[in-house]
């Protein structure tokens, strides 16, 4: 069986902006695949090219073996698309919107009615289905949009930032629903700039930044690849610079310690990378007490996706977000996307 998505050396520029420089990845059938990256990394542009909304400048894109560029209609029949900004006609009711959507995918009337009724129930939309969508909350809009994307039972569901702006409960509902979908055989490709979302949901993921793929694999593969466990140490709730430096100097000499960084933003706590499976905590505490320093808190964990991200990009996702937020002109980007697509 062909892969659900093959993207091969995709390139796309809008005006002077090179939105996608060189992106390649493969999504296997029946998995949830996450595209992780800060805002402005090229995720949405990649999705727009995949969903036939933008024409790539170069590269190959296939959906279930069908070339998106050569046979866009065939590709469209195979994919469902849930956009980042839910666009509903506020004058229509939820049910009317689904009826319109069903007709655009050429479902026979009886099939359409049946599936609309089921999806309304499944996504807990029953009390709202016959109200105008203009009255919907963010969570409702998102669920209606999900229902719309699923009416034709696509082989591939593409979601761009599916839980941005949702409350925690709505987010958990969407997560659970996507897992059910995956278990029933639908391939899910989603973008997110939430680490925990990708960590919780995605079977495999690709980290994207600056229009390029920096890493691809399962979350645990990627975590293994960045090496040892993480240890967070606090000498006191707020340690002095001298104490932190003293501890750093001593701990660095331990055989199982790979690196020690002082995190000044967190009250001079120390972040250590240690060898896997070496049970380091007792040893660290002992070493500290030998040089007369207390231990306020000490915790060991596997590397997180943020560590993976940090290793791949040289900055944390949050730093990247902040940098992107200050340098981006969203209005200009939207204008360019409308013009040049």
């Amino acid at each position: 069986m062909t892969a659900a998505v093959v993207i091969d050396h995709l390139q796309k520029r809008y005006g002077d902006t090179e939105a996608v420089k060189d992106i390649s990845f493969t999504v296997e059938r029946g998995e949830i695949f996450g595209l992780l990256g800060p805002n402005g990394a090229g995720k949405t542009t990649t999705i727009r090219c995949l969903c036939t909304l933008a024409k790539p400048d170069a590269g190959r894109i296939e959906v279930c073996g069908v070339s998106v560029i050569d046979q866009p209609r065939q590709a469209r029949r195979r994919l469902g698309y849930v956009a980042q900004e839910v666009a509903l006609d506020k004058v229509l009711t939820g049910r009317e919107l689904l009826e319109l959507q069903a007709a655009l995918y050429h479902l026979p009337r009886s099939t359409a009615q049946e599936r609309i009724a089921q999806l309304i129930e499944l996504l807990a939309l029953t009390p709202y289905a016959d109200q105008k969508t203009g009255t919907y909350s963010g969570g409702l809009r998102r669920r209606l949009d999900l229902a719309a994307g699923l009416l034709h039972r696509p082989e591939l569901l593409v979601l761009d930032e599916p839980t941005v702006g949702l409350d925690i409960e709505s987010r958990l509902i969407v997560w659970e629903f996507l897992r059910q979908l995956r278990d029933a055989g639908t391939t899910v490709l989603m973008t997110s700039h939430y680490l925990e979302e990708i960590d919780a949901l995605a079977d495999r993921l690709a980290i994207i930044d600056g229009g390029k793929v920096l890493a691809e694999g399962t979350a645990s593969e990627l975590k293994d690849r960045v090496g040892g466990d993480r240890v967070t140490l606090r000498i006191r709730e707020f340690a002095t610079d001298a104490e932190a430096a003293q501890a750093q100097g001593t701990l660095q000499d331990l055989a199982f310690v790979e690196s020690v960084i002082i995190n000044t933003a967190q009250g001079n706590s120390l972040n250590l990378v240690v060898q896997r499976n070496c049970n380091p905590l007792t040893q660290i505490e002992k070493t500290l007490s030998e040089i007369g320093l207390p231990t306020f808190s000490l915790a060991q964990s596997r590397p997180s996706l943020d560590d993976v991200y940090l290793a791949a990009t040289g900055r944390t996702l949050m730093d990247a977000e902040l940098a992107a937020a200050s340098s981006r002109d969203l209005k200009k980007e939207k204008k360019q996307a409308m013009k040049a697509s």
Binding site: R78, D167, Q180, T186
Partner: peptide
């Protein structure tokens, strides 16, 4: 949002490409 998604007979399995083309 207080309800959760209930188990349902809805078949979530994909079928789009098998449908006969009118």
């Amino acid at each position: 949002m207080s309800q959760s998604i209930s188990p349902s007979p809805f078949n979530l399995a994909p079928t789009a490409a098998d449908a006969p083309e009118p």
